[in-house]
Design a protein around this nucleic acid. Structure first.
Length: 643
RNA sequence: GCCCUUAUAGCUCAGUGGUAGAGCAACCGCCUUGUAAGCGGUAGGUCGUGGGUUCAAAUCCUACUGGGGGCACCA
């Protein structure tokens, strides 16, 4: 006699086991029509599922966010049926719903191409129109394996074989077609609707392992209605407009070319942006008690062997040799071993700890070609790297200090939302379990002291120690992992770093590896996308353009530009023989934050007409006032007078 | 590295077997101009590179290199 409790608190009793469909019909025809699935005691399931005992029930309609996931998952099934109908030799594997859509991985000797999309989409619409009910069946394991093997579906058979013994093998049918699937699903294929679109094909390794065969993955996006779909497609276009590679080209910030793959040619404007950020970081570091150092680019392999990097990362290092000398050197892929060399140069006292050693370390890594991505993933980059040599007792305090500094920097740079992840020991690692226990516990404790709340990220630590990962969210909601703090008890041991303690004995320091930006290249890529190239004044590559209206005003325009330059601003004078409309347009398109327009009147009165990017308003003010105000406004946030 | 895709003028792109095109930018001239494109003219490309098919290749095939989207990788 199940009693069904509904979200409004009301209870309905039934004489015997009932399906969700029956309950919905009992409540009313409107709900019966709208209910796509249901949640029974918090668990999402098919609406046709039978409820045997008392339960809390909530119906899922198109309005509920859960419906999107179901629509997407079902769209993947519809895609798979369509593909097998058109290309019967294709084997199916898996097809989950993902953010904004779904994908399905197929195995086929000839991979699909976007040219096949039109035919596949047409078939999908046919299947949706047929309104085939999704019917759940539970099969015996052996029957299921035999069934799929008989059909030549080796991948599916393998999946079933690998399911845990006690797992129920459920099959979903939609008309003639069926698939192994945990569910749940909508009522019929019709519920998928027509707001879907196939987006791209991509290769993906079977079970995510590069030793396995390559499958063809077809990605699609799916929404509740056409309006949502269009909004999503529009958003994709908007994101494309802020792509840092596009903006970098438009604003003349940097370029890449074949002769230096994965390395940036910074142009004058991009370099101003870069150095503005670097200057800021240098000030922040100095303020927080770091000393800056500089270490060699080319270092003998012996050091990398000692640190353990040679063993693990040799194939990702650029190796250099000299003809006349039988030596192998490597371009440094990281700075830590070099910093240890400075630390161990001469005797260190406990009085020097914590010793915070920073370097804008230029590193090179031979990243796989497929990993390269604009500024975000390059082969030559510069880290805002630092290593804190300290005692175990100082870990907590240093963590507190670092987290504070990191938040201040992110805030100055315009990022408010920061998450923390705790990455613990990976499978392949250096150091004993005892050392790892110690390092992980120390870091956890430090988090507690610093009041840092974190998510767990299992197995993702560095090979020498656990790490905190700082993830920031940008203006359009994307997450970027930038900052990191790593506790390392291994490298000081391997590279024999020591200090003399209070007891006159030798001790091992702890090394904290830390970065806030990560790499300048990547962080600038993020900054470009964050601001869509419209930087705050202190970062803008060209801060002000002084544009003359008539040639008579040209000398005054030059004078205004000179005054601003004297005040430390990046300014250009545009005295070309062109219409003011054209000049304003050109510099607006170039995202110059401030345009000062000067004509005959301004020259006579010694004023400027100020126009801000993104507005049409003009403000007339005296030259002196303009210089004072712009100089103040262009001051980096950390140098601005507070309050 | 693997799969798909792509490469034409400085930029954005059209041209799909029959003598390389447009817009913007550049350069030259005219216009002295009041807040998002004034007008006219000139110049600019061995169509990414190497092979091949063909009477004929930007166009078809093939390899390589770079770019893009994923997968794998990310000390």
């Amino acid at each position: 006699m199940p009693a069904i409790t509904l979200p409004d608190g009301s209870v309905r009793s039934f004489d015997g086991p009932v399906t969700g469909t029956t309950v919905a019909e009992a409540i009313g025809p409107g709900l019966a029509k709208a209910a796509l699935a249901m949640e029974v005691d918090g668990k999402l399931c098919d609406i046709r599922q039978t409820i045997h005992k008392d339960a809390a029930l909530r119906f899922i309609t198109r309005k509920d966010p859960e419906s999107l996931e179901l629509i997407r998952h079902d769209a993947a099934h519809v895609l798979a049926e369509a593909v097998q109908a058109l290309y019967p030799e294709t084997q199916v594997t898996i097809g989950p719903s993902i953010e904004n859509g779904f994908y399905y991985d197929f195995y086929r000797s000839e991979p699909f191409s976007p040219e096949d999309f039109a035919a596949i989409e047409a078939k999908m619409h046919e299947i949706v129109a047929k309104a085939e009910p999704f019917v759940r069946e539970v099969w015996k394991r052996d029957d299921a394996i035999r069934f799929f093997e008989d059909r030549g579906e080796k991948f599916k058979a393998e999946l079933i074989r690998d399911l845990p013994e006690d797992e129920e093998i459920s099959i979903y049918r939609q008309g003639e077609w069926l698939d192994l699937c945990r569910g749940p699903h909508l009522r019929t294929t019709k519920d998928v609707g027509n707001a879907f679109k196939l987006m791209k094909v991509a290769g993906a390794y079977w079970r995510g392992d590069h030793r396995n065969p390559m499958l063809t993955r077809v990605y699609g996006t799916a929404w509740r209605d056409k309006k949502e779909l269009d909004a999503h497609l529009h958003q994709l276009e908007e994101a494309e407009k802020r792509d840092h590679r596009r903006i970098g080209k438009e604003m003349g910030l940097f370029h890449f070319q074949e002769e230096a793959v994965g390395q940036v040619f910074w142009h004058a404007k991009g370099w101003r942006l870069y150095t503005a950020l670097q200057d800021y970081m240098r000030r922040a570091q100095t303020r927080h008690g770091y000393q800056e150092v500089r270490t060699p680019q080319l270092v003998d392999r012996a050091l990398w062997e000692a640190s353990g990097h040679w063993d693990k990362y040799r194939h990702h290092m650029f190796i250099a040799t000299v003809e006349d000398e039988n030596k192998t050197l490597a371009l440094k892929p990281m700075n830590c071993p070099c910093h240890v060399q400075i630390f161990r140069h001469g005797l260190r006292s406990y009085r020097e700890l914590p010793l915070r050693m920073a370097e804008f370390g230029a590193c090179h890594r031979y990243e796989p070609s497929g990993a390269l991505h604009g500024l975000m993933r390059v082969r030559g980059f510069t880290q805002d790297d630092a290593h804190i040599f300290c005692t175990e007792d100082q870990i907590a305090d240093e963590t507190v200090r670092f987290v504070k500094m990191l938040h201040a920097v992110y805030q100055d740079l315009g990022f408010e939302h920061v998450r923390v992840k705790f990455a613990d020991r990976p499978e392949q690692r250096a150091g004993s379990d005892a050392v790892w226990d110690k390092a992980e516990n120390a870091l956890k404790e430090a988090c507690a002291v610093a009041g840092v709340e974190y998510e767990h990220n299992p197995g993702e630590g560095a090979f020498y120690g656990p790490k905190l990962e700082f993830v920031l969210r940008d203006a359009i909601g994307r997450d970027w992992q930038c900052g990191t703090l790593q506790v390392d008890l291994v490298l000081p041991e391997r590279l024999d770093a020591s200090y003399i303690g209070e007891d006159s004995g030798k001790h091992r320091p702890v090394m904290l590896h830390r970065a806030i930006l990560g790499s300048f290249e990547r962080f600038l890529g993020i900054l470009i996308e964050q601001h869509a190239g419209r930087f705050p004044l202190w970062l803008a590559p060209v801060q002000v353009v002084v544009a003359s209206i008539v040639s008579d005003a040209a000398p005054y325009a030059e004078e205004v530009a000179a005054a601003l330059r004297e005040a430390g601003l990046a300014v250009e004078a545009d005295v070309r023989n062109d219409k003011i409309n054209a000049k304003v347009r050109e510099h607006s398109v170039a995202r110059v934050p401030v345009i000062l327009v000067v004509g005959r009147r301004e020259a006579e009165e010694r004023t400027v007409a100020m126009r801000r990017l993104g507005t049409q308003a003009q403000e007339s003010l005296s030259l002196e006032e303009a210089v004072t105000r712009l100089k103040n406004e262009a001051t980096p946030p950390d140098l601005r007078k507070k309050g």
